[in-house]
Design a protein around this nucleic acid. Structure first.
Length: 555
RNA sequence: GGGCGCGUGGCCUAGCCAGGACAUGGCGGCAGCCUCCUAAGCUGCAAGUCGCGGGUUCGAAUCCCGCCGCGCCCGCCA
């Protein structure tokens, strides 16, 4: 157990003798280390929260970690023995290193599905939110002891890919692009355009879709040859952001193995099922879905399956391979996710959790690949690199080292700026916000890490059995270090990766205050402070790791 | 028209689920800090009807109702 958790446990243990239903709060740091609000007890005890707090504060004994207890305005405030906390925390970090903040394997298997973009062209910035959220949550869950696999659901039989396929077979378009997703997207764009005004093209593309739904393996193989390079282009972009995906599951799998039809058959026998010709649907009004969308169609009138039906089969398959399923989805999938969830419940199958994110739009409106109103992820990456390179050069660095630093800064800035805001907020993309290298940004945190490295390079640190600190900036920094495992846990239970982003910023910020106030090299407390710097460097690194951002030795 | 989400200083944002301690922090603005471990840093100042109106409560940014604005969805598309 981590030192800060031991403090929390001690409080809970002591409180449990007096009250049940203990809910502790983390108060603002300058007020206390942990607080127990007494407001909810007021009714039951028929006393004011102030009186209750006083009463509880008097009854509670100090302990190994609890140094002081105070009743203030209806709160019982607990103060930690900061000497003990400091010593235990520093030693724990130096011993556990990259593992500090992590938890032992709990054997729970989680599949995180993210990105799953149609392989018909390059990722744009709007979609980039998906892999970054997905990859970060996966990293945090792994660190928290879960057995995590990431999955990309490849839609290999939809309209998008069919249009791409038709385009490459019937058109010949020059393209200067070398990256395959950019090279082939023009075929998709042109095919979509033709489909809109030419009935024959539309029919041909629809025929491709129908053939896929009938499970035509040869055709599916041929289509794969076309979309695979595009998919690889997408994955290459993700790789630059330090994102890789463990497994790829093709949608057609569930048509070929027949599981979609088993699912449809079972659902068709439910009392909620209805038919219009050969089209099968579920009536969802009893589940609170009303209006035009209460009919949830599973098949077409020609008997072929619809996307949503295949999605149900996919989730059943996935549910057999995981204890928990987490899907990262755009907010446009909310209704469909709800429908799939209802169907899975009717079938008494495991239901996935979903993390929805709002769209990233441009100041001039929604992104649209078709209308060319779009910023591609690759463009953002290139621009970020250029700007980072300028900053690096300003600081007199050059060559391979400069390139490496610029790359880490650029990729970090992109990831951080997306992950730091709550997924349900819509983002209007602006270059100056997306590529900010100051303030609440990845480079700010990377810079603090580089400062730690720089100090550690200048002096020899000697490991001891105990360390002492007393400056307020030292204590504040140590308390922040001690709370890292707490935030890992909280981030997992709330499925909110931005908590780690915010934590890393706080930590870097508190380190900067320490750096300002406490001289390390040459001070008579040099060795203790070196231990603190070493521990800080480690925890910044661990939190950056969770965000998929590189910790830099110098910049 | 119906459903879901969002609305916090000029701009962005935390807090909202589990109502209470002076509403968090960043960007931008203004004024400062490099004879001292990297100034991608630090300090100070100005700037807020927590969308609007009701309600519940001793107490509401937080819960409830209504309204307004914005986003997304409402296809036998994916």
């Amino acid at each position: 157990m981590y030192p800060f958790e031991a403090f929390e446990e001690e409080i809970k243990e002591r409180l449990s003798l007096i009250v049940k239903n203990i809910k502790l709060e983390l108060p603002p740091e300058e007020i206390a280390d942990m607080a127990f609000p007494c407001f909810s007890l007021a009714r039951e005890w028929k006393k004011s929260p102030e009186e209750i707090a006083n009463e509880i504060a008097e009854k509670i004994e100090r302990g190994e970690y609890i140094e002081r207890i105070e009743a203030v305005k209806g709160y019982v405030n607990f103060f930690i023995d900061s000497k003990k906390l400091a010593n235990e925390t520093i030693k724990s970090i130096l011993k556990m290193k990259d593992k500090f903040g992590s938890y032992e394997s709990n054997g729970i298997k989680i599949i995180v599905e993210h990105t799953s973009a149609n392989p018909n062209g390059p990722l744009h910035v709007g979609r980039a939110r998906n892999p970054i959220i997905g990859d970060t949550i996966a990293r945090i869950l792994k660190f928290g002891g879960y057995d995590v696999t990431t999955q990309y659901y490849v839609d290999d039989m939809g309209k998008q890919v069919a249009a791409l396929f038709w385009g490459t077979k019937n058109l010949s378009i020059e393209s200067k692009a070398t990256k395959p997703d950019h090279k082939y997207v023009v075929y998709y764009q042109e095919a979509t355009k033709l489909m809109e005004k030419n009935e024959k093209v539309k029919e041909e593309i629809e025929e491709i879709i129908m053939e896929c739904e009938r499970g035509n393996k040869e055709l599916l193989e041929e289509i794969k040859k076309v979309y695979q390079p595009v998919l690889e282009g997408i994955l290459a972009s993700l790789k630059r952001l330090n994102i890789s995906i463990d497994e790829f599951v093709e949608e057609s799998k569930f048509v070929i193995d027949g599981s979609v039809y088993e699912v449809i058959e079972k659902l068709a026998s439910m009392p909620q099922a209805g038919r219009e010709g050969k089209a099968i649907y579920l009536m969802l009004d009893e589940f609170g879905i009303h209006g035009r969308n209460k009919k949830f169609y599973l098949t077409r009138s020609n008997g072929t399956s619809l996307y949503a039906a295949r999605d149900i089969a996919y989730h059943i398959w996935k549910g057999e391979r995981a204890d928990i399923m987490i899907n990262v989805l755009g907010e446009d999938h909310k209704l469909e996710a709800k429908q799939v969830e209802i169907a899975l419940k009717l079938l008494k199958k495991k239901v996935p959790e979903a993390i929805f994110y709002s769209f990233v739009s441009l100041p001039e409106g929604r992104m649209s690949t078709r209308r060319g109103r779009v910023v591609y992820l690759d463009d953002l990456i290139e621009e970020a690199l250029e700007r980072a390179m300028k900053e690096v050069e300003k600081r007199g660095m050059a060559g391979e080292k400069a390139a490496r630093i610029a790359n880490a800064v650029a990729m970090g800035a992109i990831r951080y700026n997306i992950i730091k805001v709550s997924p349900d907020k819509a983002i209007v993309f602006k270059w100056e916000d997306a590529l900010n290298f100051e303030g609440e940004s990845a480079p700010f945190i990377q810079y603090a890490h580089a400062r730690c490295s720089s100090i550690l390079k200048k002096a020899e640190f000697e490991e001891k059995s105990s360390y002492e600190f007393e400056h307020p900036s030292e204590i504040r920094l140590i308390k922040t270090l001690a709370k890292f495992p707490y935030f890992v846990k909280k981030s997992i239970s709330s499925r909110n990766p931005s908590l780690i982003a915010n934590y890393a910023f706080q930590l870097a910020s508190h380190f900067n205050a320490f750096y300002r106030d406490c001289r390390v090299i040459g001070s008579d407390k040099q060795n203790d402070r070196l231990a603190l710097v070493k521990a800080t460097k480690q925890v910044i690194k661990n939190s950056l790791n969770l965000l998929g951002i590189e910790a830099l030795e110098e910049m």
